[in-house]
Design a protein around this nucleic acid. Structure first.
Lengths: 192, 192
DNA sequence: CAAAGCATGTAAATAGTTACATGATTTA
DNA sequence: TAAATCATGTAACTATTTACATGCTTTG
């Protein structure tokens, strides 16, 4: 009985008290999006699948005439989640960053065009930092104070990643700007 | 005529002088793997597709009896690559890190099990750092000295990312270890 | 002579996105 | 009353992985 990573994401969210497909989507957008994203087109079929496997139990709980399906973990679901949580994870870490790929090949284009890519990349990470702080951190801190600590711990890793990217891009921008103004000598002087 | 990101990766590698599907795979494993990975099962069909679109030209150039197909950019291919390189990129940045997801839900398991996940994560990034330095940096530096600078620039962003993860994990490990020994008061004291 | 590396491909399955489709309720 | 938000689903397409399949050449 194979459970996908998205399946475990759902089991985990249900244990944290999130109840519907819609809310799971919202919760992931706020909390796991920086290391695991999903769409509602994945969540609804996955919930069905987990229900067939008897790991979650769903019941209809409409709000007025608007249909709504509320899920909870079964004992088997809780066990499956715990097993997964305790199992060491194969060390995969995948990044898909088309902007970085573009930058990688940017020796073929004008310095100014390349510089624009670096700036866009820095701004992207700065935007992410701001977003995490504004949208995600308050919730993570509230959870932390109630004894659920790891969401905040993981969030801080995300912040560190984007801070590192923003910093490195800022440095690269300075390097490229200096090269543009002063030529080779100055650019070299900053290296050691 | 839509070209996939993997398609542009191939066009870019061809311009850097890489000639065969096999070598493109090897080159990506050494250089783009930390922000864009592929498998040979994607590369060979993509090369075919690019050839149909007349963006690359392939010819058979066997080594002895071992078949081998050598590709080069056509003028149209060069143009398509340049257009893409100059086009600003939609700011997508996706990470798939199941270990981080596990850590996110780790309030439900023993502190020692959670600590093991943090350690595994730190070691993973340390391994990546070492690998990049050993396997990728020398080549990127050689390219840099020949005037192809951006591969090294991008590599440094990758190093910064994994350094940030390793650092943050190390700090979290200390926090969790201290909590384990001394209880709440000490752990809180390190926070501000 | 065995193992590692060179070299190319395809098939099947899984994962994931985007678009389609619908409609209720709340808020400005 | 229009827009935003709540709420759930499916279909078609694209992307990606894993396994299958083959065979040559170099190196230890």
């Amino acid at each position: 009985m194979r459970i996908s990573t998205t399946g475990y994401l759902i089991l985990g969210m249900l244990r944290l008290g999130v109840q519907t497909g819609y809310d799971i989507k919202r919760a992931t957008d706020l909390s796991t999006i920086f290391f695991w994203s999903t769409s509602h087109a994945q969540i609804y079929p996955a919930l069905k699948d987990l229900e067939e496997k008897a790991l979650v139990a769903g019941r209809s709980e409409p709000r007025g005439k608007r249909p709504r399906r509320v899920y909870e973990l079964t004992d088997a679901g809780e066990e499956a989640l715990d097993d997964w949580l305790r199992r060491p994870e194969p060390a995969t870490f995948e990044v898909r960053d088309p902007a970085a790929l573009k930058l990688f090949f940017s020796d073929a284009i004008d310095r100014d065009d390349a510089l624009a890519h670096v700036r866009a990349m820095r701004r992207r990470s700065e935007r992410h930092l701001e977003e995490i702080r504004r949208e995600s951190e308050p919730g993570a801190e509230a959870l932390h104070d109630q004894g659920t600590r790891f969401p905040l711990h993981v969030l801080k890793i995300g912040l560190a990643v984007h801070q590192a990217i923003a910093d490195r891009c800022a440095e690269l921008e300075r390097e490229l700007e200096e090269e543009g103004r002063g030529g080779r000598r100055k650019a070299r002087a900053t290296r050691p």
